[in-house]
Design a binder for these strands. Structure first.
Lengths: 246, 246
DNA sequence: CGCGATTTTGATCAATGTCAAAGGTGGTGG
DNA sequence: CCACCACCTTTGACATTGATCAAAATCGCG
C-alpha cells in the first residue's frame, strides 16, 4: 500500500477551481462571493503520512479543509488505548469545536500524504457572523458529523466483530464515491490496525475476521484495496439499520 | 424510582421566563428579540414516560426543546439490537438533522414524563436564515453533540465494562449540574437496562458491575439515585481522557 | 394484596483479547 | 540494484471478558 509517495497531493490553483468546494464550508459561496474565502484563507499546506495536523489537548490556531489524502481523527485515553473517531477524506472540514479557543478535544493524524487548505482560527467567528450562509452550512456539517458519530457508536455498541467490519468497510466504500476503475475495487488506504482502533477490536482479531470475510467470498481487503464480492451478502450480515435498507 | 407521576412536568409561562432558554437554540435571543421565538413556537406539550417524541424512519414535522424530564435518543438495528446514543435532559434541542425533510435517523423515547417546547419544522430553515445568530448557535449545539457522541464512542470502543459504567455515570452526574440536596446524590432516572443499551452491555452484566462498584465503595446507584462515594477512585478507574483530567 | 417490570444470582458458554513467533511487503540507503 | 529494516499481517495456543439462560428476589404501583 502506498500511503506516502514522491508525488505530492493535489492542490487547486484557487477557490474557483477547488474540487472539494461543494463539500465543505465554502459550499454556499458562489461566483464573486468565493472571493470572501479566497481572501480569508492563509494558504495551502502539504503534510507527510504519519504527521499530526493537531494533537489532542493542543491549542490549535487554524482550521482545515482536507483537499487530498486521508486523516484519522482520534481520542487517546490515559491507559494509552486509542479510539479512531472518524476517517476524514477530501471535503472534510477539520478543527471546528464548540469552544474554538479550548484545547483540541481530539487529534488528527495524516494516514496518507495530505493537502489541506488552512483558515485562521481567530478570525473565523467574525467570518461566519458576517456571512450567515456559512453559519448555516457549518450547522449542517456538524449535524452530519453527529450522524456519522452516532453510526459509529451504534456499530461498536451493537454489532459483533464481523458485522462491525462489514459495516465500516461499506461505509468507507461509500465515502470514496466510486471504485478506482471498473470493478478494480476501492482505494481505502488504511491498515488493519486502523480498522481495529476504529472498531474497538484487536488487530489480530481484525486479521482473523478479514480472513473469514474472504473465505465467505464477501470481500477482499489487501494493500489498501477493497473489493466487494457480494454486496447483498455483506449488507445482510452487516445488520444495517432498521428502516434504512439502502 | 418515579419515572411517571401525577405531578406534571414544569412548563414556563413564556420565553422570557423559560429556565432553559440559555441552554438551547434560543440562547442568543435577548430582550425584545425573544419575541421572535415566542411567535415562532407552536406551543408546549407534555408526554408520558414511555411515549415516543419521534420514531426512527418517521417523517417528523416538528423540532423540540426539552423543558423538563429525560429522553433517550436511540438507534435500532434490523436484528433488534438497540443502541442508546444519548440521554437528553432539559435544554437539549431535539430533531435537527442534516436534511430536515429526510426521515429521522434515530428515535426519541421519553424516559420520564417530559415537557417540550415545539417548533414547526417547515419554517425553521427560514427562521435561521433570517436570524444568523440562531444559525451560529445551532452550529455550536451540533458541534457539542458531536463531541458528546465522540466521548460515547470512545467509551464503548476503548473501556472495559466497569470503567465504561464509571465514565457514563460521572458524565450523567455532570449533566445534572448539582446533587438533589447536600450529598443526597444525583437524580438519574434511568434503569440498568438503559445503561446496558447505552454501553453495549447486557443488563445482567450491568447489574454485576454495579455490585462490584458498590462493593469497592466507589458509588451506589439505586432507584434512579446515584451517590458518588469516591470521586477520585472513580476517575482513576474510569480511565479519563489523556490530557483532560477534570 | 398482587402483578409487571426491574434487579439479582449462579452456572455455563461464546466471543474476543493476549502472547508469541513467523512470514510479507515496501521503502531506504548503500 | 540489492539488502536490510521497520512495519504490517498471519497463525496458533491459551486466557478472560462479557453474553446467555434460567430462576428467584425485589420494587413500584394499582
Amino acid at each position: 500500500m502506498v500511503r506516502s509517495s514522491r508525488k505530492l497531493p493535489a492542490i487547486p490553483a484557487n477557490c474557483r477551481e477547488c474540487p472539494i468546494r461543494g463539500l465543505t464550508v465554502c459550499q454556499p459561496l458562489e461566483g464573486d462571493h468565493l472571493e470572501i474565502v479566497q481572501r480569508f484563507k492563509l494558504g495551502d499546506r502539504v503534510l507527510r503520512a504519519g504527521s499530526q495536523l493537531y494533537r489532542p489537548g493542543e491549542t490549535c490556531t487554524e482550521l482545515y479543509n482536507v483537499l487530498d489524502g486521508w486523516v484519522s481523527l482520534y481520542h487517546v485515553l490515559r491507559s494509552g488505548h486509542c479510539q479512531i473517531l472518524d476517517f476524514a477524506v477530501p471535503g472534510y472540514f477539520l478543527g471546528y469545536q464548540p469552544d474554538l479557543d479550548a484545547p483540541m478535544q481530539h487529534g488528527a493524524e495524516c494516514i496518507t500524504d495530505v493537502a489541506v487548505c488552512v483558515f485562521p482560527r481567530q478570525r473565523f467567528a467574525a467570518l461566519i457572523e458576517k456571512n450567515p450562509s456559512l453559519a448555516i452550512r457549518l450547522a449542517w456539517l456538524n449535524a452530519r458529523d453527529t450522524v456519522i458519530a452516532h453510526e459509529h457508536l451504534t456499530n461498536v455498541g451493537c454489532r459483533p466483530a464481523r458485522a462491525r467490519m462489514a459495516q465500516l468497510l461499506l461505509e468507507l466504500c461509500f465515502r470514496c464515491q466510486r471504485p478506482v476503475s471498473k470493478d478494480q475495487g476501492y482505494e481505502i488506504p488504511i491498515t488493519q490496525h486502523h480498522i481495529a482502533d476504529a472498531l474497538g477490536l484487536t488487530s489480530v482479531y481484525v486479521s482473523q475476521m478479514l480472513k473469514l470475510l474472504r473465505e465467505q467470498r464477501l470481500l477482499v481487503f489487501k494493500n489498501g484495496l477493497l473489493r466487494i464480492l457480494d454486496p447483498d451478502g455483506l449488507a445482510e450480515i452487516a445488520d444495517i439499520d432498521h428502516l434504512f435498507l439502502d
